[in-house]
Design a protein around this nucleic acid. Structure first.
Lengths: 248, 248
DNA sequence: CGGAAAATTGAAGTCGGTCAATAAGCGTGG
DNA sequence: CCACGCTTATTGACCGACTTCAATTTTCCG
């Protein structure tokens, strides 16, 4: 849940988890992990390129240096669910032996890759490592659970607000301005992340704009104008009759 | 994802995970964990009693011997999202330092409780233990991810079918008949688990009954009549125009 | 520039929700 | 054992939030 005063995610676990999700490690307390990734290989992937596919054996864990990776799962008939977006500082690939979903670059992405077998070897000498990995997966778990609540019970407008606050919070953790939110992914990605359609995402953003909650210069960047109301929406604290909850 | 032939969950990870969810450990390969729980204290809780509440510090992990625990999260205005149901054989309480959601008994439940600090001590002597715990949380992660896909992209009928197949599969893992599914929780719990309303759950079950997919004697037990169609629905492989996808 | 992809807007339809009523359990106590 | 009262489940009628289908506009790159 977001709080208004400090704009900070409820850090319930030992590890600070900026709403990173499945497979994504916490950023704080991650020094241990990062020291291992520092010895990893740099890998760059272009927009639309897959880091791995569903069913692939997991061989590496990755620390994002820049860019954005979309983790998603396809249904047989083409429907898609985006589980999480990973940003700079996030660690992905620790959650599976065999990948259960696709990982694709939403924008040009640079990562550090380490072999999982090597990581396992290291864990035998360094007892702290396994604990950090465990904490990382655990914090991922908490993030996905929050996502479940969003998908399960929030209305369209609340989901979008939640998403924007999530982006703002995570941008802030990377040292970006909190009232300026960049949206690196396309609308269809946002829609598949929030269980909505592209059209609903557009319409909701438009109504937010008209209500003075946000301002948009480009399609991929917006300014937060009324963070209080956005927060209330994001946390499900808004008035049930607030028209911003709805899309139309 | 479910498969028809063996009625078995895709065991993608090393640990067999019968669709158990957040905080719920895998059942297979769990011998290590169980040996520790064997030295735990027996605790019994009655229907409606809370095992813990959101915000509580996590002090114990529990292995369910019988009954059913509902893990849920409340929104400020009373909306509720049920994250998972834990059944006999499942382990809960390993996913958090501070609990992020409530745990309440759906029916009379008996559990084995061990202290987390004690478990941590043991982990120092037994390197395998931390690995098993890690695997447990990892498999929980995978389950919640599946749930995200369900909530994000499946229609009402598909969600109910998925839920029934999940119950059947997990009952089967506990040695129960696969074509006889018991539903220990109330309709409102099912609704909050699937992001629907009580009425939609009822209506969908009725239409399943009328279509010959299931038969119901009591409200809390049903017989699976057409598992093939239920499976197809559950996995999102049904015809987009199949009326069973819809509620009405 | 030009052409395709992406974003946005509009109009109409529908799935699932809301509100309301009825039925079915279920435990308690006479 | 049955009557009573309460909770839960089910069904019906209506409604509306979101989707679907269909333009139109904007953006992005060659």
């Amino acid at each position: 849940m977001f709080t208004f005063d400090h704009l900070e995610y409820s850090a319930v676990d030992t590890v600070r988890t900026p709403s990173s999700g499945a497979d994504i490690a916490a950023v704080g307390r991650q020094d241990v992990l990062e020291s291992y990734f520092a010895r990893g290989a740099i890998r760059k992937i272009a927009v639309g390129q897959m880091l791995w596919s569903e069913g692939d054996e997991a061989r590496h864990a990755y620390l994002l240096r820049s860019g954005c990776i979309r983790l998603s799962q396809m249904l047989p008939d083409g429907r898609r669910a985006v589980h999480q977006f990973a940003f700079a500082g996030d660690v992905i690939g620790l959650g599976s032996i065999v990948h259960g979903r696709d990982a694709e670059a939403v924008e040009a992405t640079s990562l550090l890759a380490v072999s999982l077998t090597w990581l396992r070897q290291c864990a035998k000498d360094d007892p702290a490592l396994l604990g950090v990995i465990y904490a990382s997966v655990r914090s991922s778990l908490r993030s996905v659970q929050e996502h479940v609540t969003v998908l399960s019970r929030l209305a369209a407008g609340e989901r979008i607000a939640h998403f924007l606050m999530e982006l703002a919070e995570r941008g802030r953790n990377r040292g970006e301005s909190p009232d300026r939110v960049r949206i690196p992914m396309r609308r269809v990605d946002v829609a598949d992340y929030l269980g909505l359609t592209v059209e609903t995402v557009c319409r909701t953003l438009t109504s937010f704009r008209k209500a003075g909650l946000i301002a948009m210069d480009n399609a991929d960047e917006l300014r937060v104008l009324d963070i209080r109301r956005l927060m209330a929406l994001a946390n499900g604290e808004s008035d049930p009759h607030d028209p911003m909850r709805r899309a139309s």
